[in-house]
Design a protein around this nucleic acid. Structure first.
Lengths: 246, 246
DNA sequence: AAGGATTTGTTCGTATGTATC
DNA sequence: GGATACATACGAACAAATCCT
């Protein structure tokens, strides 16, 4: 949409600004057909910095798995297109990404029975402080971390839910054991922020990375709230799709 | 969801990371009901840095207009909650934010008649290279920049559209002059990235800020494509809402 | 096969910015 | 405010791998 702009004395190191620009330019016309980047010298001139500074940026992206550098040949893009995650009434993780990855897995990181925080109680339409099950999960597609989520369920209705999820790796499957054969996504609220330290570790991101944050509420066919969850997607690896898949 | 994460050697100065956290922390209980921040010493301990570093962060935010420092009383947050922008079949800018701001305005930044890039032609279902109208706009709510957008229209059908938009400040109104009384949002694709230099200038952001990017396609009642657009929202000021407004 | 051009990788040194105490 | 340690950025030169003629 517009040209490179590098700001000095902004509190953000030049090499990081350049790394961010290159990462985002990977989708645009920064590379030629073979996926080769301009030379370090050309990039340095383009951004108006020293070659070392460009090298630092490239090294960070190599570490991230975005680029691959070969001595004497050049620097190349590791093509990994963004997964498209559909959001709508029928939002389901496994079905949504079904066609785009060979292997999909949901992992249980942690769980606990707790008293419902205010926002959770309101969303689930239960009393504040009522017992809820908190489920911390993460998902991988073809071995790449895609998202992490914290979900809350009414503990009285879904006691033992975590065991069914851990076994099947699927929320949809786990619901069946509680007589929920179908459910709908009533609402989703999307925002974005910098990844925190837990995001970096779980999603294997580098500092300064961005996460898309989706707050979602699932309800059963009668419209009763089932699950309130916050899901964090790596913004470099996922985009969210609302409406028809043109 | 989890604790503050400050990363050293990340290419982002500690004072900027802390400034980003404080800016976001407006909603996350960083301040008490009166909007007062903890003391510098408390913040320094919480983030695990020296008090001078916190001071640098606060000074940057005061400069930005996010914080207000009063001698002898403390430092206060200028509370400006995130606007919630609804996305769905009836997505319209002015109606969506209607209740949340006193003054809403769309401004025309630039326009031109061009040959359709490949992606645009495909979305609008016209031939690649066919003439299209490109419209660069930005929107403010109560004087705060909210979003910028680049929209494409079939030039044969909508020649002169820019004049109607410039006069009314509304896409919906401009459509009426071309016999389009109603339209639908067929699809929206959401991603997030770091703001580029044009984003920083137009949206009045600081380096390292995040923008939510929404690619949208509007169609008329017959399902014919009308408008393909890329809108960039300041992630600090806007969240996107899909489905019911619980 | 030889050699020059190109491109990434490495090692010096120096200056400035950032963060702590 | 001043001293110290470390990260960032620049500059110059050279080494190593690859490509082309």
């Amino acid at each position: 949409m517009s040209e490179a702009g590098i700001e000095r004395r902004s509190g953000v190191a030049l090499w990081r600004q350049i790394a961010d620009q290159i990462r985002q330019g990977v989708g645009a016309g920064l590379s030629d057909e073979s996926g080769r980047l301009p030379t370090e010298l050309a990039l340095a001139e383009r951004f108006g910095v020293n070659r070392h500074t460009v090298r630092t940026a490239i090294q960070a992206l190599v570490q991230e798995g975005v680029l691959r550098a070969e001595q004497g040949r050049g620097t190349f893009i590791e093509r990994q297109p963004r997964l498209s995650y559909p959001i709508g009434p029928r939002t389901r993780f496994s079905e949504g990404l079904g066609g785009q990855a060979r292997e999909l897995r949901g992992n249980l990181l942690d769980h606990a029975y707790e008293e419902a925080p205010e926002a959770v109680a309101e969303a689930l339409e239960i009393a504040p402080g009522a017992p809820v099950l908190r489920l911390d999960t993460m998902a991988e597609a073809d071995g790449r971390p895609i998202s992490r989520a914290r979900s809350y369920f009414d503990a009285q209705r879904f006691r033992g839910f975590e065991r069914h999820f851990a076994r099947t790796g699927s929320i949809t499957m786990a619901y069946r054991h509680f007589g929920v054969s179908d459910y709908l996504r009533r609402s989703t609220t999307i925002s974005a922020r910098h990844a925190d330290s837990a995001d970096l570790e779980i999603l294997k991101l580098s500092p300064g990375a961005i996460v898309l944050v989706a707050l979602g509420l699932n309800v059963d066919q009668a419209g009763r709230p089932l699950q309130f969850s916050e899901t964090r997607f790596s913004a470099d690896r996922v985009e969210l799709q609302v409406g028809n898949t043109t």
